[in-house]
Write a protein that binds this DNA or RNA. Structure first.
Lengths: 342, 342
DNA sequence: TTGAAAGCGCTAACAT
DNA sequence: ATGTTAGCGCTTTCAA
């Protein structure tokens, strides 16, 4: 793992017959260098394939133009497009994005935060706000500028650019109740260390609890983020004696897994059982019946998070948290309950 | 964008009452430091929230333990799980992954390669092998270790860990022909600057060309990577006077878009028209009817790519390209053609 | 417009 | 087991 042989400023300086300072200026502040000198330097740079050494540059200038993002998993459509948007906005300002993944593990997230700092991140994008005190202390101690996304809190500490998972789940559940469902089950994401999953459970629970017409939660099953897990959870719910008429799922992947399994088992959706999702990823519009779900404006969220982080980094006028609104997308997987003809 | 105020080795040294060298050792080679000294150092590190400065470290050790990956887009399920697997294998060896995206633009890819080198990447993961000579020259000039994935070539130059897109598409198309289809259309990805998309087109074309029983390609439409684009391409194909009995799609997203549109238009799949995909992402098993497609073992590919790159970086025994085998997944979207009852 | 030289934080060779 | 010290490649005064 050696970087030996990389040409250095000195190599270029020798090749171009000027001093290293001039090369540095030509690269960072071209106006300060005579045009013909600049051209001579450019030739040398191209010929040698020179790229500045990040280490030297950071050391000397104390500036990295790099931010880090730590997402729970790269293999998750839910973060992909938001992150892409985040990156694009950063790129416009010449800022490079470093991405790491935590595997939904707050301990690992802490290590990744340290690693990104080590790699010179000027600021961070974090997903969700549940993390050990240790991590929060570290962020505070080092005064690291960061934005928290994919969730929203109305608190003075911390800059949030995201949506309120509890509220969105609450709204969705009330809609399910309006359709006449009273026996409701939930397939949730794993809530441990994951405030988004937990808040969605809380939103569903609250809506059911506040209902005055006998609504109840027959069962809550937590499942990992894969189609199969949704399918298995569906089986678990439908093999109990206490059957729901609607299953609210913590995300679209679980919902799609449940729908496919329902189809395979001969259960009609929504006639026998309604199923709803969350996120509105591509899957939701493709599955049959179309998935009624909560649309999360990922691109807008990613862009806004980037803008806020850039603000923080340049010490611009006070920024404050931004709540991104979600929206119910009505498709065909939710309908009024029918008497089961079993 | 200042990193000011970050504690340095010297700060820790002072706090712990030892020299900087001892701190450095305690952090990088703990066995060489007395246990109680180590503990004292650890306390100081925690208290100050010290993280090593990457710049200083790189400069002094000429080692970064970082590799870069440039993928066409983060918002693409096709790369996500392979990249996640790639990252996990690297992490086992203490190597950090930096991810950048090229937006399917070879010019932008070149810039990202330079940027990653600047950020201290010891090696690179590149997707596909179509890029300007300029880029190849740069890689060669700087002797950058890299692995090319998501495609495969049997050539001595370049280390490939991937699958043969042409061959896979050829196999799939022959299967379609075996079902009795003779009038075939294709919805392909954008082939410009994208060898994977182009090779898939070539595989389909070759199979059709080699058929001696009147098979022909009624139309090839190139579409961008979104469900809607697949849907639009489907419309374009089905509004022509020359109708196919099967549509081969360059990827699952396009195929799913086409299937959903077909359903909306009242065309039955596969009775009226067969549709096939490529990649076998989650969508493929969820869409109705289930998508007959080509399974790409992404996780295996990502892991193997990481191992090969680590090999390259540690100058281990000669590595050679690895062909990952793809597999036809038969679901229900492909069947024998029926007479159209229009 | 250009050059000379100090020093950024760290590691590693050498000393103790 | 620990300390001393010379750079690593770059930017940035300060001087010419």
């Amino acid at each position: 793992m050696k970087n030996t042989g990389s040409p250095t400023l000195e190599d270029v300086a020798e090749a171009a017959g000027v001093s290293t300072a001039t090369i540095s200026r030509a690269l960072n502040d071209p106006d300060k260098v005579a045009k013909e000198t600049r051209e001579r330097i450019q030739k040398a740079v191209d010929r040698l394939g020179y790229t500045p050494n990040f280490g030297g540059r950071v050391l000397a200038s104390n500036r990295t133009n790099t931010v880090g993002a730590i997402i729970p998993s790269m293999a998750n459509a839910m973060f992909a497009s938001g992150l892409q948007a985040f990156q694009e906005v950063l790129a416009e300002s010449g800022v490079t994005l470093l991405v790491a993944s935590s595997g939904y593990d707050t301990e690992h997230e802490f290590r990744q935060i340290r690693s990104l700092m080590t790699h010179g991140a000027d600021g961070l994008l974090l997903i969700g706000d549940e993390r050990p005190q240790k991590t929060k202390d570290f962020l505070a101690l080092r005064k690291i500028p960061y934005v928290i996304s994919w969730c929203y809190r109305n608190t003075p500490d911390g800059l949030y650019v995201g949506f309120d998972n509890e509220k969105a789940a609450y709204k969705l559940t009330n809609r399910v109740l309006e359709f006449g469902h009273r026996d409701i089950a939930m397939i949730a994401g794993i809530s441990k260390g994951n405030d988004r999953a937990r808040n969605r459970i809380e939103g569903v629970s609250r809506a059911v609890r506040e209902n005055t017409d006998g609504a109840r939660l027959t069962k809550i099953v937590e499942a990992r983020y894969r189609l199969e897990n949704g399918a298995e959870a569906f089986d678990e719910i439908m093999s109990a004696s206490d059957l729901p008429t609607a299953i609210i799922c913590g995300n679209d992947v679980l919902a799609a897994g449940a729908i496919v399994r329902a189809r395979k088992k001969g259960a009609r959706v929504p006639d026998d059982v309604s199923i709803t999702g969350f996120d509105d990823i591509g899957l939701a519009s493709v599955v049959e019946p179309g998935l009624t779900t909560v649309r999360v404006p990922q691109i807008e969220m990613g862009q806004e998070a980037a803008r806020q982080l850039l603000r923080l980094l340049s010490n611009q006028p006070a920024t404050s948290s931004i709540e991104i609104e979600t929206e119910l997308v009505m498709r065909d997987s939710l309908a009024a309950p029918k008497a089961l003809a079993v």
